[in-house]
Design a binder for these strands. Structure first.
Lengths: 206, 206
DNA sequence: GTCTATAACGAGATAGAC
DNA sequence: GTCTATCTCGTTATAGAC
């Protein structure tokens, strides 16, 4: 289950060009940002011309919209898969964190975290999609937190929505920092601490 | 004390051109990213030509190095000011968070958080400066945490260094998300929760 | 669906006058 | 220290042949 980064047709296999363009562009946005690559970059990587890219995505904004749409759909599918696979709230959260860890191990940022950094430079439809991605994640997390609190497996102060904000922000920011250090383990350690703070050993152990 | 964003000579007052260039460029990086503005953007804003900018900063990389150097120096000075002003660990942390909140209220990201997102596209000297900024922040935070744990005002599991990582990541990420929403209050609420988790009311209040 | 060719513009950068 | 002028290259995008 590599729903966050693999292509529908196999990441580097012989899929149609449209999917290969999206795969390459997605990786480039996650590594370098939307303003950090060009049609020439993608074209060279795929061994096609820029004109071919424009055939599939008339403008860079159109490409960006397609990217975030596909990413959000896959992310939503991944969340549904977690819901279907892991009944326990703690297991759901751990699986959620693993989605991020897997992206980071490939040297990538969360696509929407990267776009959030570049937010001011984005076209309105892309901005909107970023916000929707964030909201979707927060509401899913809040649901898991409420489940955990209800069954006694999680404890936290404040609302589930507020705690969901903390988790999402903490994961995105820790990912950002850990990627600069080139140290995915740093992310995993901090994420584990974040979850541990919800699922039991609260307070000091000095 | 606006050490994070004001210029030495007054942000928009009549300072020398070099400082005005740095002020404008700093704001542009924090709002749009290093790859999200050009010499033309800065020149137009200041009412000078691109050539004048190149006189002060021969290359965009040189401008970037000057930016992060000045930012890091000011940030370091702000941390020293906090150490001198607030003897209590809790007050130090609150003042630290306020540094970030002030930046966000201006619609900006932390300069180094933004550069961390663009890390892969940066010149080596700028990358190095980003890492040093992050390390400096983490070690300062770890010192405050150790002080708080020693005097009994703070409780946390794991090492002070690990907890410092969590705080820095949490602040940067929450800032990223809150800025996209255009909602600084969201940042302040999450940051307050983050601090509250250290300074007392641990565990559930269901 | 992909190519060649090119347009139109912007970016980073330099030379040399004032 | 700032200007005009220019250079070179990259970027997005289009036209039209195959």
């Amino acid at each position: 289950m590599k729903l966050l980064t693999a292509s529908t047709s196999g990441a580097s296999g012989r899929g149609d060009t449209r999917a290969r363009i999206l795969d390459a562009a997605e990786r480039l946005v996650q590594q370098r940002g939307f303003n950090g690559f060009s049609y020439a970059t993608v074209a060279a990587e795929l061994g096609v011309t820029k004109a071919a890219l424009h055939h599939h995505f008339p403008s860079k904004t159109a490409l960006g919209e397609a990217l975030i749409t596909r990413y959000s759909e896959r992310f939503a599918a991944a969340l549904e898969a977690i819901d279907a696979t892991d009944p326990q709230a703690r297991a759901k959260l751990a699986a959620y964190v693993e989605l991020y860890a897997r992206v980071l191990r490939e040297g990538r940022m969360c696509l929407c975290g990267m776009l959030a950094a570049e937010y001011e430079t984005l076209a309105p439809p892309i901005r909107q999609a970023v916000l929707e991605f964030l909201e979707h994640n927060e509401s899913w997390l809040a649901g898991v937190l409420e489940q955990g609190r209800a069954d006694g497996s999680m404890r936290f102060s404040g609302s589930a929505a507020e705690t969901a904000d903390s988790i999402l922000g903490g994961l995105e920011g820790t990912m950002l920092v850990a990627r600069s250090y080139g140290d995915p383990v740093r992310f995993e350690a901090t994420a584990a601490r974040l979850l541990a703070g919800l699922t039991g050993e609260q307070g000091a152990r000095s």
